[in-house]
Design a protein around this nucleic acid. Sequence first.
DNA 1: AACCAGGCGCATA
DNA 2: TATGCGCATGGT
Length: 286
Amino acid sequence: MDYTDKRQVGDSTVLGGVRNFDLTQILECGQCFRWERVSEGAYEGIAFGRRCRVRQEGDTLLLIGVTEEEFERYWRDYFDLGTDYGSVKELLRTDPVMRRAIQYAPGLRVLRQEPWEALCSFIISQNNNVKRIRGIVSRLCAQFGGEIRGGGHAFPTPERLAVLDEEALAPLRCGFRARYILDAARQAACGAVDLDALRSLPLEEARSALRRIRGVGPKVAECALLYGLGRMECVPVDVWIARALDTLYPGGFPPEFRPVAGIAQQYLFHYARTCPGALQLPAAVR
DNA sequence: AACCAGGCGCATA
DNA sequence: TATGCGCATGGT
């Protein structure tokens, strides 16, 4: 567990002794698309049809407008605060490359997002950039998501999207991805793909179930599993990870990474993408 | 004005 | 199994 104490103050929850946690690293590393920075170290976002304002001050984390009950029900798991990232990092740091990637962003964590939102968001992400992904997701929610308390919109349900057609999605300007979104929504809505059931399905079965959705290939399926279904052993291989594996792990990740390989992937992705020269490391450091 | 962006489907060999 | 191409859109 990565905090030592918790109390409710007014309508907010305050965590103390927070470790291995940096809001900016977590929310701006390209794993989620609905959080906005409202000031230094403070973000606002929506998940589970609820709004959350969160601010970090050192090892204190304030969840504003979140009761203790809501924290326990939703946000503790969302931020994966029950996991001790200290021991995850200890395992990964036995590797010299991973040691650097972790040192670069020691407060990074993999969020446990809602399955449908993760699947849909990463369908949108293909051959796209983060800024435009955020724009499309934002329009998707504003157009079709239910209004929530305190303003803003929930992520639209599969059922809501399943009854639409490509023309209705035109305002999103998501291009060729419109039909993919619709197929995913329809399959999720009718139960052809039971997203919640994928949490406990054997990995290969979960993968093949997701791949039956048009527009869901190996990478998007892996994203849905890692970010949406809490399968931390899953490794989405995008262009950055492919390059990083090529130069830094030509033989693939060490086998001992396996249970948390998806977390290793996240450290490496962020490092490779945002640290200049990360991929030109001389072979000597390995 | 080409090229790129957290890929994928499809055709071809 | 393995490549190569087109794909909507918007930013350099």
